[in-house]
Amino acid sequence: MTNIVLFGPPGAGKGTQADILKKKYELVHISTGDVFRYNIKNETELGKTAKSFIDKGQLVPDEVTINMLNAEVEKHPEAKGIIFDGFPRTEAQAGALDKLLESKNDSVNAMIALEVEDEVLVQRLLERGKTSGRADDADESVIRNRIKVYYDETAILKNYYKKQDKYFGVDGVGSIDEITQRLSKVVDQL
């Protein structure tokens, strides 16, 4: 299996690229953000809990996220691989993901990070906020806080995966096709 952690700050293009890579390599795309949004929209207990954190630009607690991720992985026992989008976000989550995959005789093959400057991210998210209906994309201060949280709490994962020789940084600026080509070069060598 080819298991990829697709990484990058909010607005880096993870969702767009994950959809393309999913089709190209026949992978399952698990986006914690999409799963949270579904639960929030349907006002499930998980959704209510997640919403209270997301609305403040904070991360959802590990236990909630890990339990949800395990349930999503279980839905796809015959997958050729998985793109993890939005997870892990902390070293503890990365360790939990390693344990989860080891229990299935598998592992993460690569962390691929889309690298984009902050000001480009802010403009992308404000633009997305005009059509997405997402409150966290419409408020610049919330956007900047989400980016800060990303750097403060999740950038440490870069070192976690570098130590395993599994980290690949990819320029996330340019056309969708250009970025896909850069990502594909990494996936093709796994």
Score class of each variant (00 low, 15 high):
P10Y: 03
E140W: 10
Y150V: 04
R89W: 04
V173Q: 12
S184K: 09
K80S: 12
A110W: 00
I143R: 03
N67T: 09
L69S: 01
D34R: 10
P10K: 06
I30T: 01
L59N: 01
R144P: 04
P61K: 13
A71K: 14
E115R: 11
G15R: 07
E102L: 15
P77S: 11
N42E: 14
T154M: 07
R146I: 06
I179D: 00
L190A: 05
K51E: 07
L101M: 11
A94M: 06
Y160N: 04
A135S: 15
I54E: 01
Q93L: 07
F168Q: 00
Y161L: 06
I147A: 02
F168W: 04
L97S: 00
L101H: 06
D62E: 11
K163T: 10
M68C: 10
I83F: 03
L157A: 02
T131P: 05
T49R: 10
S103D: 13
I147P: 00
P10E: 03
M68I: 13
G133S: 11
K24N: 11
K130A: 13
D118C: 09
D85A: 07
I156E: 08
T2D: 03
F168S: 01
K130D: 08
H29A: 07
L121E: 01
D177V: 14
S31G: 11
D171E: 15
D34Q: 13
R124N: 08
A50K: 02
I54Y: 00
R124M: 05
E153F: 10
E91P: 05
G11M: 06
P77C: 10
A18Q: 04
T180Q: 09
L100Y: 02
T44G: 12
V28W: 05
N70R: 14
E78K: 15
Q58A: 09
G95E: 09
S141A: 15
T49C: 09
S141I: 11
F168C: 03
T44E: 12
E102G: 14
I40S: 04
N159C: 06
E178Y: 08
D106N: 15
D137K: 10
Q181H: 13
I54K: 03
K162A: 13
I54G: 01
K80V: 07
E140M: 13
G11C: 08
D118P: 08
N3S: 07
D118Q: 13
I40G: 03
Q189Y: 10
D136C: 11
Q123E: 15
D152C: 08
A110L: 07
I20F: 09
P61C: 12
H29E: 05
H29W: 05
V35I: 15
G13N: 05
I176H: 08
Q17N: 12
S141N: 15
K162Y: 03
H29T: 06
A50Y: 02
A94R: 00
I4D: 00
V73Y: 00
V173G: 06
L190W: 04
Y151H: 15
G11W: 02
V122P: 03
Y151N: 11
L6T: 01
Y150I: 04
N39Q: 13
Q189E: 15
R134E: 04
L21C: 05
I4H: 00
A113Q: 03
D177F: 10
G169L: 08
P77I: 10
V186L: 11
A110T: 04
